[in-house]
Design a protein around this nucleic acid. Structure first.
Lengths: 164, 164
DNA sequence: AATGGGCTGTTATCATATAACACTTGACTG
DNA sequence: CAGTCAAGTGTTATATGATAACAGCCCATT
């Protein structure tokens, strides 16, 4: 197994502002390509989701928007932006947390697999064929046709293990 | 790959009342063993969860209880029973559906992996080492210590593929 | 019978998500 | 260049899922 399929390891010290600007640039491009509108609101929501590598709740985003705008946005505003970003593959939803996180490689459509640290709350996105294949084989053995995968692993990231 | 690890294939025609009674008997035994109380309420909730092989929402259970009792139970009543059943490993929670399903093999602690049909809504519980191992290996490669797994696959079951 | 812990009832509230309808904007059409 | 329409956003209300806090009950042990 190589590291090639590990989309991001947010614990490596990194210039996070670059993560954000790269994500926004990529989003801009992909939306242009797809012929859909990357509006100001959608961009702001994506930027907020990317403010960290931790999954963010819709209402957290709402609050952040409210702080910027001081005119309080309503839930549908945020959910619509998130729905758009999900459709475009720019964010993922983490079902076990009811939260959203920026997609690390939006240029190819996929559903991520996530390692979620219960201590620091960081989510590491994977895209491991080995996991997908194991699931596919099990599904095939009962004739089940896979359409979507939710793989969310909780535990402790390397850094938090050391801290503990 | 054998079928040995497939906990249940609810599509095989079967006497479902036997599923229920077996599940209740097993629960009774396991609770006795663990020295915890398998109260009437807990038993009723478990029975309701087992009424089908489809994940059931907490509020559905609530309604069913209300129909039986005609005195309307409140949410905490159901959630407490479900929390108990989860702790004892008698039911699983399906995060992607906010729903609960009876555990097919409560005698050994595990978190199930689920194949969920989007058409008939049946959930097939698996317990596949191959999936677990693939996840473990990926996690290990970034030094992540796995504690819990959420593996929920959506798609079409064999029967619903034929129907379509 | 006393008593104390675990279980359940009850009320209120929080958290997450969506329905429905009105208004705005911006891209195409003629 | 104005008209028009679809997509996007605002706004209000509400659905859906889950928990906090406290009161009262039951029953196992003494």
């Amino acid at each position: 197994m190589t590291d090639a399929f590990i989309q991001i390891d947010p614990h490596h010290p990194h210039d996070h502002s670059q993560c954000v600007s790269e994500a926004l640039d990529a989003a801009e491009q992909l939306c242009a390509q797809a012929g859909v509108r990357f509006t100001v609101l959608r961009k702001r929501v994506l930027e907020l989701v990317w403010q960290s590598h931790k999954p963010l709740g819709a209402y957290d985003i709402l609050e952040a928007l409210a702080r910027e705008d001081d005119r309080r946005a309503a839930p549908p505003t945020v959910y619509r932006a998130l729905d758009f970003l999900l459709e475009q593959g720019l964010v993922h939803r983490i079902a076990s947390l009811n939260a959203f996180i920026g997609c690390a490689s939006p240029e190819h459509r996929h559903e991520g697999q996530f390692l979620i640290c219960r201590s620091c709350r960081i989510a590491i996105e994977l895209d491991q064929p080995a996991i997908r294949d194991a699931i596919g084989a099990s599904a095939a053995s009962v004739g089940f046709a896979v359409e979507g995968e939710t793989v969310e692993i909780t535990g402790l990231c390397a850094q938090c293990q050391v801290a503990a």
